[in-house]
Simulated assay, not measured.
Amino acid sequence: MTVINIALVGFGKIAKDQHVPSIGKSEAFHLAATVSRHGTMEGVPAHRDLASLIADQPEVTAVALCTPPQVRYALAREALEAGLDVLLEKPPGATLAEVEDLIALARDRGRVLFATWHSRFAAGVPATKAWLAEREIQRGSITWREDVRRWHPGQTWIWQAGGLGVFDPGINALSILTEILPQSAHLTGADLEFPSNQETPIAARLSFLSGGAPIEVDFDFRQEGPQTWAMNFETNDGVLTLADGGATVSAAGQSLSEGDALASEYDGIYARFARLLAGRESEVDLSPLIHVADAFMLGRRLITDPFVE
């Protein structure tokens, strides 16, 4: 097996906590460099910009972009134009149009573009999808509540336009939803709560329909104590409950999966990226981001208390 030299572009919390360990366990990849204005990793060549990486380390053939979404487009274009294959952290971009442009550029340059949705690789997602495929969903609910101070400490970009606010974790729930539903869903209404001093929402309540079945969604960035990442679906053959972000699933009283949130999700991402590279195929599913865009289009803007970290 030819080992792929990959660089991490953006070396913040998600890169250190998730990408580095999964690359380290992968037989397909070698972490050959980092690109960051701030972070470095001992024993790994570091660059302050992508141009330096491209000039100094031609052995690097792929990059994983772990920067905030607002700056990812320009970096992805630069990498694709330089002949590199590109993995995009979620969300793949700040707008739908810019990701469509990257899809076209990757196709024209013969490069692999992979837009990742890490929650789809949670242990219980395949079993959930298979179980729901054979049943009629009557209604569903999603509760995705977490503490922004715990998961995004000091990350002011998440409160700036394009940073998505509560939709940064909420899009994880939407990525699971769009993967497991037997029929597609569309948004019918939304309430978005914006702190009076921020540009993105801290909470959101969404209503969807999927094949006539209502699905109610509750996102909140203010949850202290235990975190909640759960889904429930009532069907014609019992209730399915998904917990721990998709790791733990029970259906009609029987366990389909047990595990921990985030465990092995990024291992799955890099295994999938290796397969895409071997087959020279791109994979970019925009459906979770479309739902977020729809929420901003349809949503009622409600002003709430200022957010102060």
Rank of each mutant, 00 (worst) to 15 (best):
P45W: 05
P92Q: 04
R37K: 12
S52F: 10
D17L: 14
S210A: 15
D85H: 13
V63T: 02
A173T: 08
N232P: 09
R107A: 11
V249Y: 03
I176D: 02
V239R: 14
L88R: 01
F29K: 06
E309I: 08
H47E: 06
E42F: 08
T188H: 11
A104F: 02
P201A: 08
E258H: 08
L209H: 06
L276E: 03
P153H: 09
R120S: 03
S141L: 05
A76Q: 01
I215N: 04
S250E: 15
Y270E: 13
A261G: 13
A51V: 15
Q70H: 15
V9D: 00
R205I: 09
S207T: 05
P126Q: 02
W117I: 00
R37C: 04
R301M: 10
E89H: 11
A251R: 01
I103H: 02
A122C: 07
D285W: 09
V308G: 07
Q223R: 15
A15Q: 00
A295Y: 04
A127W: 00
I290D: 04
I103R: 14
G24L: 04
R150L: 11
A7N: 07
I6A: 08
Q138C: 15
R150Q: 14
L187F: 12
I215Y: 01
I6S: 01
P69L: 02
P21W: 00
D305Q: 15
Q57D: 13
T34K: 00
T188I: 12
F121I: 12
A97W: 07
M1P: 06
N232K: 14
V63L: 06
L113I: 09
K13H: 13
P182H: 12
A293T: 11
S287N: 13
I171W: 00
A173E: 05
D17S: 14
G212A: 07
F221Y: 13
G212D: 05
E224T: 15
M297V: 12
W151D: 02
V125M: 01
W159T: 03
